[in-house]
């Protein structure tokens, strides 16, 4: 998946789930998601599940740091760096 595709998917997910659709189109790829509280602990857990289930990327605990989640650009880079899609699993039943 190209970085543009990753970025588009992550942007769409954040808009729909955390910004009520973002009708004013305020979300940009450098919007400070952590600083503005768009990504709090609950929302980040949902995003991690989305990345795991929809993009096949499992973020290891050591990867859950501000540098990787500060904006869409960072998230996209992280997903891209984590590389080849892994098999999505269902919690607790793999």
């Amino acid at each position: 998946m190209s970085t543009d595709e990753i970025s588009a998917k992550v942007t769409a997910f954040i808009k729909e789930r955390f910004l009520s659709g973002d009708e004013n189109k305020e979300l940009e790829d450098t919007t400070p998601l952590l600083e503005w509280g768009v990504l709090n602990s609950m929302n980040t857990a949902l995003l991690l599940m989305y990345l795991r289930d929809e993009l096949g990327v499992v973020v290891p605990p050591t990867g859950i740091v501000a540098e990787n989640f500060k904006d869409i650009r960072s998230i996209t880079k992280m997903v891209n760096d984590l590389g080849s899609p892994q098999r999505a699993t269902v919690a607790g039943t793999e």
């Binding site: 998601l33 952590l34 600083e35 509280g37 709090n40 980040t44 501000a66 989640f69 500060k70």
Partner: peptide, 9 residues
């Protein structure tokens, strides 16, 4: 320790 990083700070 990092007010800009929300819950990751």
């Amino acid at each position: 320790t990092n007010p800009k990083a929300g819950f990751l700070g």
